[in-house]
């Protein structure tokens, strides 16, 4: 909202949200989700040690479905280790002095989405998932 707009103005994002049937914060959740997924793609699928495919193509498709967004991310990088998407990580021990400094990414992805599926089709990694609106 531009500075100076009073509280009496209708927030365009709020209007859009109610038209889409989205809960507050949906845009923020989508940003976190995409940041984690696309970071993983750039850091792992195209990692120098993952093979020769340090360059390639990443596509992102977001489709609005009933009550959720259907996301499809493809890339031409290295196959996901183990051939499937990582499950939800075990809860971390946050009580001791040796706190984890990483490993939060897939936890966030599982927190924010559902129906996560991975497939390898020829040269493509295909990750599909849903984010509730």
């Amino acid at each position: 909202m531009p500075p100076g707009m009073g509280a009496g103005c209708t927030d365009p994002r709020g209007r859009l949200y109610s038209r889409l049937g989205a809960r507050r914060g949906a845009a923020g959740r989508l940003r976190i989700l995409l940041a984690e997924i696309l970071n993983n793609t750039s850091e792992h699928a195209f990692a120098p040690e993952a093979g020769p495919a340090i360059e390639g193509r990443v596509t992102l498709t977001i489709r609005m479905e009933d009550g959720h967004l259907a996301l499809r991310i493809t890339d031409t990088g290295a196959t996901m280790p183990g051939g499937c998407a990582p499950g939800r990580p075990a809860p971390m021990d946050l009580t001791g002095p040796d706190l984890p400094e990483g490993g939060f990414g897939w936890g966030l992805i599982h927190d924010l989405s559902c129906d996560i599926a991975y497939a390898r089709a020829g040269p493509l990694n295909i990750l599909t998932l849903c984010m509730p609106l």
């Binding site: 940003r31 976190i32 970071n39 002095p97 706190l99 984890p100 400094e101 990483g102 939060f104």
Partner: peptide, 29 residues
């Protein structure tokens, strides 16, 4: 993102047991 969060935790751990880090002004995301 998760890397930024890890960097804040890592910075906090640099302080050692005799110092502490608190946080203020967290925006929604």
């Amino acid at each position: 993102d998760s890397s930024g969060l890890g960097a804040i935790v890592a910075a906090m751990k640099l302080l050692g047991p005799d110092r502490r880090m608190d946080l203020a002004g967290l925006t929604p995301i």
